[in-house]
């Protein structure tokens, strides 16, 4: 047989093996977490906060972490959304086309996108120290906002860029202002992509541990105000795994399952939204 054909089939086999490894590792990660976590995921785990004896393996669940994580991620995503929409719209040509600010902002966002979350955490901690604040829900929300802004803005800007110029010009020719065009034409056209960006950022926010480690603290109670410390799912996984008792470690598995389920729901929702709304887009 031709040596070239042999070479091709060797590499093709390697490629298929590689792809199988990649997809396989995804399935193995999800599988192992579900396999170890689902059996210990009782109703008590998700309906009760940590009670006395929790760290001895009895008493209560991780409702404090679930609620804490939702507070943090919803708060952070909402703030990041307000800021990101502004930036993404402003990066359109009508507003900032060709200015140095636009290219500097894009560069800054690119760098921020690649900045490790632990650096956000350290920076956030520093700011809290300067303001004489303790680790709190508010601190966590602010750090998550900063972390999510580059993710969300980039995703939004990508889709806003794809809105055809002609469509906008039709709107301008009817006398609409830039704001009206942005909201009624661009946002409508880019809606599925923008929602996808929000969801991706939400997923990053709810799963991130390194940034809120410094800034949100950890507590066994559900926070009553913005200035209380708050628990969170990723840190629940981390701290409970670090304890010596196997019963408590199992609670880490359960926490990881809940986190994973949230991420899976987000991922599936993103797909569905993409499918459902792309029908209404003018091409």
């Amino acid at each position: 047989m031709d040596i070239r054909i042999i070479e091709e089939s060797v590499f093709k086999t390697l490629m298929i093996l590689s792809l199988t490894t990649v997809i396989g590792s995804l399935l193995v990660v999800i599988g192992v977490i579900l396999w170890r976590g689902l059996p210990v995921l009782t109703l008590d785990m998700i309906t009760k906060t940590a009670e006395g004896g929790y760290y001895l393996g009895t008493g209560g669940g991780i409702l404090n972490a679930i609620v804490g994580s939702l507070y943090l991620a919803v708060g952070g995503t909402a703030l990041a959304f307000i800021i990101s929409v502004g930036i993404a719209f402003y990066l359109q040509n009508e507003y900032s086309g060709g200015t140095r600010l636009a290219s500097m902002t894009r560069l800054s966002l690119d760098i921020l996108w690649g900045t490790p979350s632990i650096v956000y955490g350290a920076f956030g901690f520093m700011v809290l120290m300067q303001l004489n604040m303790r680790a709190s829900l508010l601190g966590g929300i602010i750090v998550l906002t900063l972390l999510e802004i580059p993710i969300m803005t980039r995703a939004m800007e990508e889709v806003i860029k794809t809105v055809p110029q002609e469509l906008k010009e039709v709107s301008y020719s009817l006398g609409a202002t830039r704001l009206e065009t942005s909201i009624k034409v661009v946002a409508k056209q880019a809606f599925p992509g923008m929602i996808t960006g929000v969801l991706i950022a939400f997923g990053r926010g709810i799963g991130d541990a390194a940034s809120i480690l410094f800034t949100a603290g950890y507590t066994d109670r559900i926070p009553g105000s913005l200035f209380d410390a708050t628990a969170s799912l990723p840190l629940a996984v981390f701290f409970q795994l670090g304890t010596p008792l196997p019963q408590v470690q199992q609670k880490a598995y359960a926490s990881a399952v809940i986190l994973l389920i949230i991420i899976l729901i987000i991922s599936i929702t993103t797909r569905l939204i993409g499918k459902k709304y792309t029908k209404y887009i003018i091409r």
């Binding site: 997809i23 997923g203 799963g207 541990a209 996984v237 795994l241 994973l260 899976l264 991922s267």
Partner: peptide, 24 residues
């Protein structure tokens, strides 16, 4: 089929990977 799976791989929180590492 593969693209959403790759995106999912990117979306899994790092503590979950860490836990998987400890378990496996």
């Amino acid at each position: 089929t593969v693209k959403p799976l790759i995106d999912l791989l990117a979306g899994i929180p790092s503590v979950v990977y860490g836990l998987w590492g400890v378990l496996v």
